[in-house]
């Protein structure tokens, strides 16, 4: 188990390194950078003091260096004396647009992103497992058919369009605005039960929207797997030797389908996080999504790079956890082939 864990961990580190290169290349693709444009702007306005400050920042963050040196100093493998130290040193860089350290700009948003995605993940499981089991067992019933149909529809409804529709109807029918993560009146209030309640209410719609497609996909896959297992000889044996229907279901076939199901979580994560970024934009949730789009538009490279990397880390670590859980519940993986 330890060996498996270590090997898996090493792969993750290498993957993350490759991802960081990819992200850096992508954010450096547009010609020029934020500070060069800012300096030109300031020079044109004749504000030479501010231009000098921007030029100082440009030097301190090494934007005048060749690309590969910039990359190395960004991830912190090549710290230079008296200059920017890099991610591995715990310095996430400077947001030139906000003129603040990156971590101050995104600090709260990171937490919100994590909360929204975790809540969506929990929601998916709470909903998908019972529904999948139900539709597989009561396959012919009208309720099961309805669930299957809804799952089909949920799979085909793009999340951000659904968010728009809900925005429209909830506003028209109930007069409530579902944007944001907390009531505007409570935004600056200290943490209290009332605030927690408000956050919970505001979370419902985004989470349903984000989770819908993944839930639908999971119901479909899990139902198909369970249907295959239900007719295998061991399941028949379990029933034949007199186990009650619930026990005969949960003890054998259900355990069999949990396996591909856990493996699925890893594959589901990128889509889930993509969806949350998009839905955050439509519903103006304070996650990293809106900040990312703005940073990309302004070529605020450290801010955009950090958010992209954060999202990638979230995905990769999530996949790692899924793999470890899989190893825990499936001895075939734990002991290796």
């Amino acid at each position: 188990m330890t060996r498996y864990f270590l090997r898996r961990f090493a792969t993750m580190a290498v993957t993350l390194l490759a991802i960081s290169v990819l992200i850096f290349v992508v954010i450096k693709l547009p010609p020029g950078d934020f500070l060069t444009m800012r300096i030109q702007e300031l020079m044109a306005e004749g504000d030479s003091a501010a231009a000098a400050k921007a030029d100082f920042l440009r030097r301190a963050y090494g934007l005048d260096l060749p690309g590969w040196q910039q990359y190395l100093s960004w991830i912190g493998l090549w710290p230079r004396a008296g200059a920017y130290s890099g991610l591995l040193q715990g310095n996430f860089g400077w947001s030139f647009e906000y003129d603040l350290p990156v971590i101050d700009v995104v600090g709260d948003a990171l937490g919100a992103t994590l909360i929204v995605n975790l809540a969506a993940l929990v929601f998916i499981h709470l909903l998908a497992i019972p529904l999948a089991v139900f539709t597989a067992v009561r396959r012919r019933g009208i309720v099961a058919e309805a669930i299957t149909f809804l799952a089909y529809l949920g799979l085909a409804t793009p999340s951000f369009l659904l968010a728009l529709i809900l925005l429209f109807y909830l506003n028209r029918w109930f007069g409530i605005s579902i944007g944001g993560l907390v009531d505007p009146d409570l935004a600056d209030a200290p943490f209290s039960l009332e605030k927690l309640g408000s956050i919970t209410v505001h979370l419902i719609v985004p989470i349903v929207v984000i989770a819908l497609a993944s839930t639908a996909a999971m119901i479909r896959r899990m139902k198909a797997n369970l249907l295959d297992e239900l007719h295998k000889p061991y399941a028949v044996t379990a029933r034949a030797k007199g186990l009650g229907p619930t026990r005969a279901l949960l003890k054998y076939p259900f355990r069999m389908v949990l396996n591909p199901f856990v493996a699925d979580i890893g594959n589901m994560l990128p889509g889930l996080i993509s969806g949350s970024v998009l839905v955050s934009l439509v519903l103006s949730l304070p996650t990293v999504g809106p900040i990312l789009v703005q940073a990309l538009r302004m070529q605020d490279q450290y801010l955009a790079g950090f958010i992209l990397l954060f999202v990638a880390v979230l995905t990769v670590v999530g996949m790692l956890i899924a793999d470890l859980v899989l190893a825990l519940i499936d001895p075939r993986i734990r002991f290796g082939k």
Binding site: T15, I19, I23, I27, P270, S274, A304, L308, A312
Partner: peptide, 20 residues
């Protein structure tokens, strides 16, 4: 493996922001 472990949308966003 690397491409599949990246959320597509942020990457799409970054790439399309890079179009001149």
């Amino acid at each position: 493996e690397i491409l599949r472990s990246l959320p597509e949308l942020p990457l799409w966003l970054a790439l399309s922001a890079a179009l001149p």
